[in-house]
């Protein structure tokens, strides 16, 4: 259940940013999660509701933006979209992949008052 830790990490960032960005209430948190981020979005949603209770983000909506997992295929010489870390190139079947993106776990933006 590290999702609870992550949800609390999100809330802490929201509280830290409140003074700098001049808001007192968070309505929407837009979070980017990559398929390789080892985060279970459903578990994170559950924890987010619990972690935001009594904070400036109470009842805020969690908008999860799922990003793509991207790898560089040495055989094709181009970036390809992959499903999992230990997969093969979807276009040529090569194992020679270097994962370049998809482990994001980042707060992209907020809607605030």
């Amino acid at each position: 259940m590290h999702e609870m830790a992550l949800a609390q990490g999100v809330v802490r960032i929201l509280e830290e940013q409140a003074a700098a960005q001049h808001y007192s209430r968070v309505r929407v948190v837009r979070l980017e999660i990559g398929p390789l981020a080892t985060v279970e979005p459903q578990a994170l949603r559950f924890c987010f509701d619990a972690a935001t209770r009594g904070t400036i983000a109470e009842n805020a909506a969690l908008d999860i933006v799922e990003t793509a997992a991207v790898a560089w295929c040495f055989a094709c010489g181009e970036s390809v979209i992959i499903k999992e870390r230990s997969g093969t190139c979807p276009s040529c079947g090569s194992f020679q992949l270097q994962v370049t993106g998809g482990d994001e776990l980042r707060i992209r933006e907020l809607e605030v008052d």
């Binding site: 992550l6 309505r27 776990l105 992209r108 907020l110």
Partner: peptide, 17 residues
């Protein structure tokens, strides 16, 4: 309706750790 302001954060959740 109140329209909420959008604030760009772009911060990794694990950045603190």
């Amino acid at each position: 309706d109140h329209k909420a302001r959008v604030v760009k954060i772009e911060q990794d959740v694990l950045s603190k750790n």
